[in-house]
Amino acid sequence: MEGATAGGTGVSALLKRFDYQKYSSFIALIVLFAISAALSPFFLRPGNLVNILTQVSYTAMIGLGQAFVIITAGIDLSVGSLVAFNSTVGLILLNAVMSGNGGEGLALVVGIGATLAIGFVSGLFNGFLVTRGKLAPFIVTLGTMAVFRSLALFIGDAGEITSQSQTFAAIGLANILIFPVPVWVMLLLAAVMDIILNRTRYGRYLSAVGSNSRVALFAAINVNRVKLVAYTITGVIVSISAILLATRFNAVSTSNTGVGYELDSIAAVIIGGTPITGGRGSIWGTIVGAIVLGIINNMLNLLSVSPYLQGTVKGLVIIGAVYIQRQRA
């Protein structure tokens, strides 16, 4: 269509017009995959690949919410602490119902329900402060990051809480076809979020608000509600991730669970091609970004590089990804 009008010079013109920026994260993934396969014979084993996907699924999910927030030109630093906070409350309630002879079924409903509810309210709270309070998202979520972690430590007595329900643990360890539950949840959420972003009115408004909120306001868009919804969605997704993470170990550590998730989720979004300044973004890119980080970790493990150096590599990859985006923009 467009190629014809430009007076096609064949393949070279086509290559010129190819949107590298849009697919750069996919290209990076393929390259990284090939290098990893060449470096280690263990890498391509199905068990290892499934393992990588499972490991990244928790932060990848959160990355999807994070992507929405970043598209509005915001940021959510509180996600890691929120994982610990709402799963702590969830597990305490679950155990309380179990020991109060409430039955396992009820306990699961209460525990999971409470976790989701807290995620919803916490996200709403972040969004409320950003929109009504007119505070910078960075400041708001830096504050709530400290608040959520401290509440988790306080409620859980800074210790570890183990769930008394065996069924709870079964959820997280179950496999459907070849993948464990969290991987399926990640894929499902990504599919839904991708449709919301690219096909619905809300998705269009999300980009409009991030691109220029004054224009959005003049175009009769409810800018505050668009932002509020983005933070709330993030809160709920954080809860889903928190539940799945808690089922994996059948426990939550108030001090360790979710530490660094804010950085991992933001990194996945950025590597996936969403500019930190917002205005547009990619959902599947975010998933790819998370997987790229996962493969790097996996490779460093397989090559027995010190785990202390993994942060260095991750950090450099993030900086590199943004650098490349800058060049293309």
Binding site: R199, R201, R204, N212, V215, A216, R280
Partner: peptide, 30 residues
């Protein structure tokens, strides 16, 4: 400053104000 979104396409700008009328079903699909 307040009129157009430079990072949006021609279509996306043209329907920015009236987008609701292009949406179908309760899912608000465009």
């Amino acid at each position: 400053g307040t009129g157009i979104l430079t990072s949006f396409s021609v279509v996306q700008n043209a329907t920015l104000v009236s987008l609701e009328s292009y949406c179908r079903s309760i899912l608000d699909l465009i």
